[in-house]
Design a protein around this nucleic acid. Structure first.
Length: 612
RNA sequence: GCCUUCGUAGCUCAGUGGAUUAGAGCGCUUGCUUGCGGAGCAAUAGGUCGCAGGUUCGAGUCCUGCCGAGGGCACCA
C-alpha cells in the first residue's frame, strides 16, 4: 500500500551507504510489530555483520553497530522528510538496530478503508497469475457413506481451491470417486442376495443403507474363530459368489453392470447432496472405472520409452525402477509396480494416466492432490515417474496430505461400521444451534432460524476442521467440533453480525459512500489502529495461504481479525460517538471490517449470517 | 534397516531466522450487561519450546546425533 514511499526511502538508504562505503545487505521490510502506531521497518543486523566481517569501521558488537547505522540513516532521512519529499510519513525512529518508518495515521487509515470499500467482495483478490491449477479432492468410494474424514478432505480441498482462485490462478475443481473394486462388489453381492428390489426412501437414507450392507456382508464373509465345518462351507460359498460377481462385472455382464450402475447412482446422489450442503461445485468428475481401461495404454508407452521394465516374460509384473532410472545411488523412490502380472491395473497406473489427461487435455500447470498423508510415498513415486516421462509440470505437482480423522474410541472402520457420518454431525449441529437460538434470539422469526442455525452449525464444524494444520491427526469430538465459544467459526461469524448490527442501526447500510468526507483526521484509539492494521494484512494473507497451499493461514487470520474487531467493539462505541466526523469515520471502518471478515469467511467456505 | 511427519502451558494447538516479557483456545481464578446483541470483553495464574552438540552477529525456528510417538516402504487403494 505504501510501495512508492518504501521505494523512495530504500533509494535514499542505498545512496547513503554507497556514499559512506557501507556494505549494505538486502533490505527486507516488515510491518512494525507494535500496536498503537503503524509503518514499516527494516533491520541493519546483516549489514552490520557484513561490516564486521570486512573489519571496517568501529569495532562495536553487531547489535550496537546496527543501531549506529540505523541512526545515521535516520539522520539523513529526517532532513528529507522535513523537506516534504516523503509524503505520508509522520516520523522515523532508530530502535535496537531497526529503522522504523511511521505513517501519518490519517492517511493510512483512509487509504486502507477506501480500498476495502471500493473493492468490496474483491478486496484482497490477487492479480491474474496466468497459470492453471487443478485441485483434486472429494474422492470417496461409492457404495459407502460420506463420513467426517471425507468432510476434512473435502473442506481442505475446497478452501484451497477458493484460495488459489482468489489469489489469481485459473482454478479447476476435480473429484475422483473410487467406484470399482472388491468393496463395491461386496455391497452389490449382498444386495443381490438378500435385498434385491429394496430401496429406502431419501437420498441419505439410501446412501447410508449401502454402508450398512457392507458391514453386514463383511461379517458374513469374514473367517470367525472356532467356526463349525458347516459355517466354513457357508462362508466359502459366499466367497465364491462374490468372486463370480466380480468376474461377471469385469466381463461386462449386462445384469451385474446394470446393478452396479443403479447402486452407484445411489451413492453419487448422496455425494452430490453432501457437496451441495458444503457449497462445493466440482468442475470435473473422473471416475476410477473410466480411467481404468485407458490407463493400460500408458504402460506400453512407458515400456517403449524404457522407463518401465516388463518382467512379464519371466512371470513377473511391469515395474518402474525409479531410483535407477533417475540415476540415484541411495534408495529414495524405490521400485513400484504399474501393471500386475495378470495384466490388471493398479492405483499408480491410474494416477499416471489421469495426470497425463490433466496435463494434456486440461492444460494444468499446477496439479494439487488432497489425499490422506499415508499416501505420500505413492505420490512421490508418481511425480518422479511423471518427471522421467518428460512432463515439466511434475515439478508443480503437490500432494496436500492430511492426518487422518479418528474417534476417541479408535480409528474409524467402514468394515465394522464404526463411523461418524457427516450428515449426522450436520444434523446435530443444526439441532444444537437451534437450541441456543431459541434461548438467545427469540426475536428472529422461526422460519429464518433454521437457515441461520445451519450457517452457524456448519461454520463451527468447518472451522474446527480448518483450524488445525493439515499434517496433524484429528481425534474427532462432537462437543469440540460443535463448540461455539472461543476460537471457533461462530466467534468469527459473531464479529460479522456485530458489525452488521451497527451498520443497520446507523442506517448507513448500503450507502456508506455518503460518508466519503470522513478523513480519519481525529486521534485514532489504539483499537481502531489495530483493526485497520489487521484489515490491511488481508491481501498478503491471501497470497501467502495460496502460494503455500495452507488453509490454516487463512483460518488463523480470520480469527485474529474477528478478535481485533471484538476488542474494538467493546472499547469504542461507534453509535454514541458525538463528533459527526469521527462517527462517520468509525462507521466506515466498521463497514470495512465487515467486508473483510466476509471475504475471509467466504474463502474458508463459511457463511456470514446477518443476524444470529 | 531406510524414508517421512511430529515432540512448545494441565489439555488442544499457533508461531519455522531477527524487536521488551515465546502466543491463542479450553480448563482454573477474578472483574465487566441502567452502552452498537455477553456466542462477547478485560485481567490473573500456568513454559529449562523432548535432550545434547553445531552453524550464525542472532536459533522455538536451520544442520547433526540421540530419546519418544505416528505413518510409509513393488503386484491394496
Amino acid at each position: 500500500m505504501f510501495q512508492k514511499e518504501q521505494q523512495l526511502i530504500e533509494e535514499k538508504i542505498k545512496e547513503f551507504c554507497k556514499a559512506n562505503d557501507i556494505a549494505l545487505a538486502e533490505l527486507k521490510w516488515q510491518p512494525i510489530p507494535f500496536a498503537g502506531e503503524w509503518g514499516f521497518a527494516t533491520s541493519f543486523f546483516q549489514t552490520a555483520a557484513n561490516e564486521a566481517k570486512l573489519g571496517k569501521g568501529s569495532k562495536l558488537p553487531v547489535p550496537q553497530k546496527a543501531q549506529e547505522i540505523a541512526e545515521q540513516v535516520k539522520g539523513i532521512l529526517r532532513l528529507d522528510a522535513q523537506d516534504g519529499s516523503v509524503d505520508g510519513i509522520s516520523h522515523i525512529e532508530a530502535v535496537k538496530g531497526y529503522l522504523n518508518v511511521y505513517f501519518k495515521t490519517s492517511d493510512y487509515a483512509r487509504r486502507v478503508v477506501d480500498e476495502v470499500l471500493a473493492s468490496g467482495l474483491n478486496f484482497g483478490r490477487g492479480a491474474a497469475k496466468h497459470e492453471k491449477v487443478m485441485v483434486e479432492y472429494a474422492q470417496p468410494n461409492t457404495h459407502h457413506s460420506f463420513h467426517i474424514g471425507h468432510a476434512r478432505n473435502t473442506l481442505l480441498g475446497e478452501v484451497l481451491a477458493r484460495l488459489v482462485e482468489f489469489a489469481g490462478f485459473e482454478t479447476i475443481r476435480a473429484s475422483y470417486p473410487g467406484d470399482l473394486g472388491l468393496g463395491v462388489i461386496t455391497v452389490m453381492w449382498i444386495y443381490d442376495k438378500k435385498y434385491k428390489g429394496q430401496e429406502p426412501e431419501g437420498i441419505h437414507e439410501r446412501g447410508q443403507w449401502l454402508a450398512k450392507l457392507y458391514v453386514e456382508a463383511t461379517a458374513m464373509l469374514e473367517k470367525k474363530e472356532g467356526e463349525t465345518p458347516e459355517e466354513s462351507a457357508k462362508r466359502e460359498e459366499y466367497e465364491a459368489e462374490r468372486r463370480e460377481m466380480y468376474r461377471k462385472w469385469d466381463a461386462g455382464d449386462e445384469y451385474v453392470r446394470n446393478l452396479w450402475h443403479v447402486t452407484r447412482e445411489w451413492s453419487l446422489d448422496e455425494l452430490r447432496d453432501v457437496l451441495k450442503m458444503l457449497d462445493v461445485k466440482i468442475d470435473v468428475w473422473f471416475y476410477e472405472s473410466e480411467v481404468d481401461e485407458p490407463s493400460k495404454a500408458i504402460v506400453d508407452e512407458l515400456i517403449a520409452k524404457d522407463i518401465a521394465t516388463d518382467e512379464r516374460p519371466t512371470g513377473g509384473a511391469v515395474i518402474v525402477k525409479i531410483d535407477e532410472k533417475l540415476g540415484l545411488t541411495k534408495e529414495k523412490y524405490r521400485t513400484n509396480v504399474i501393471l500386475r502380472s495378470d495384466g490388471t491395473t493398479l492405483y499408480l497406473t491410474k494416477d499416471l494416466a489421469l495426470a497425463k489427461v490433466k496435463f494434456e487435455q486440461y492444460h494444468v500447470d499446477r496439479s494439487i492432490y488432497v489425499v490422506d498423508t499415508r499416501q505420500s510415498m505413492h505420490f512421490q513415486q508418481a511425480f518422479a515417474i511423471l518427471k522421467l516421462w518428460g512432463f515439466p509440470q511434475s515439478e508443480k505437482c503437490f500432494h496436500l496430505g492430511y492426518g487422518f480423522v479418528s474417534l476417541p474410541e479408535g480409528a474409524m472402520s467402514a468394515r465394522r461400521g464404526r463411523l461418524v457420518l457427516f450428515k449426522d454431525v450436520a444434523d446435530e449441529a443444526v439441532k444444537r444451534v437451534l437450541a441456543v437460538e431459541t434461548e438467545k434470539s427469540a426475536d428472529i422469526p422461526a422460519e429464518e432460524r433454521e437457515k441461520i442455525a445451519y450457517q452457524i452449525g456448519m461454520g463451527a464444524l468447518t472451522y474446527s476442521m480448518l483450524s488445525v494444520d493439515n499434517n496433524k491427526d484429528i481425534v474427532f469430538d462432537v462437543n469440540e467440533a460443535l463448540s461455539f465459544d472461543g476460537r471457533t467459526g461462530p466467534y468469527i461469524q459473531n464479529a460479522y453480525v456485530r458489525a452488521n448490527s451497527i451498520l443497520k442501526k446507523s442506517k448507513v447500510e448500503g450507502q456508506t459512500s455518503d460518508l466519503r468526507l470522513s478523513t480519519f483526521d481525529y486521534e485514532l484509539t489504539k483499537h481502531e489502529i489495530e483493526l485497520i492494521e489487521q484489515i490491511s494484512r488481508f491481501p498478503q494473507t491471501v497470497e501467502q495461504a495460496a502460494l503455500e497451499y495452507r488453509p490454516l493461514v487463512m483460518a488463523s487470520y480470520a480469527y485474529d481479525l474477528a478478535n481485533t474487531f471484538h476488542s474494538f467493539y467493546h472499547a469504542v462505541n461507534v453509535m454514541q460517538t458525538e463528533d459527526e466526523g469521527t462517527r462517520n469515520g468509525r462507521l466506515r471502518l466498521v463497514a470495512a471490517a465487515k467486508q473483510t471478515i466476509e471475504n475471509a469467511l467466504r474463502l474458508l467456505d463459511i457463511q456470514s449470517p446477518d443476524v444470529m
